[in-house]
């Protein structure tokens, strides 16, 4: 593995918001490598740029300057639609607020990314059912989000993120809305899925307990990487 380029490589990535006096440096020259299969947690106080880092890595946002290599390919200059294609084919997202479509069944929610992949309907349904079974929601395929608990909703979101078979799972405070027991269940699920699927996970969190599941913890302050710590546990 040593000779391979890292899956994700950021070099001098800067993201500016606003102009002139109101200019905000959300990211200020970030250098970061994430290896294939690695589980990285990004921590930091609010306003430290951890969410912006996540958005840039997740191709929801683009750096103002700097390099972003994904599997060795420069992608910092991609336009909106090209970034959409990258998200569609290589990335999966889960959010603190779950972000499921309301009044839409679990199955339909999980199918959503597959629709944009242009997968035929029968295959889509099969894949979505499989993904729901994988997160332990077999039998709840036709429930609406409003009929599911928070932990179950986050499982649907995980199924949706993984249905398209992405390389990287981006998780933004995935346990922020859950109690400790549900949080642990979700983290255990993520860790086991990561093992099964050789998934790379990038997670933003402010909870030390959750960050402890990661291989490496990155601490951000004022748009820069302040420190890095490797966890003793080997995944």
């Amino acid at each position: 593995m040593a000779g391979d380029p890292p899956l994700i490589r950021l070099r001098g990535v800067t993201r500016l918001y606003g102009q002139g006096a109101a200019e905000v440096r959300a990211l200020d020259g970030v250098d970061l490598d994430i290896a294939r299969g690695e589980f990285v947690a990004i921590m930091g106080p609010s306003g430290s740029g951890k969410s912006t880092a996540m958005n840039v890595i997740g191709c929801l946002d683009r750096p103002t300057s700097g390099q972003y290599l994904f599997e060795g390919v420069e992608i910092a200059g991609l336009d909106r639609d090209q970034r959409a294609l990258l998200r569609r084919n290589y990335l999966g997202f889960i959010f603190q607020g779950y972000n499921l479509l309301p009044r839409t069944s679990a199955l339909d929610n999980v199918e959503l990314p597959l629709i944009y992949k242009g997968m035929p309907r029968a295959e889509r349904i099969a894949r979505a059912l499989e993904a729901l079974e994988m997160v332990g929601l077999k039998g709840r395929e036709h429930h609406d989000p409003s009929q599911l608990s928070g932990g179950q909703q986050q499982r649907v979101a995980i199924a949706r993120a993984l249905a398209g078979d992405p390389r990287v799972l981006l998780a933004d405070e995935p346990t922020g809305n859950l109690d400790t027991r549900r949080s642990v269940e979700i983290m255990d699920l993520l860790v086991s899925l990561r093992r099964q699927r050789e998934l790379t996970i990038v997670m933003v969190t402010h909870e030390d307990d959750m960050a402890a599941y990661a291989d490496r913890i990155i601490w951000m302050v004022d748009g820069r990487i302040d420190s890095e710590r490797r966890n003793g546990k080997v995944a």
Partner: peptide, 10 residues
């Protein structure tokens, strides 16, 4: 936003 995040193009 969700649709865009999962890869919908404009």
């Amino acid at each position: 936003g969700i649709r865009l995040a999962v890869g919908a193009q404009a």
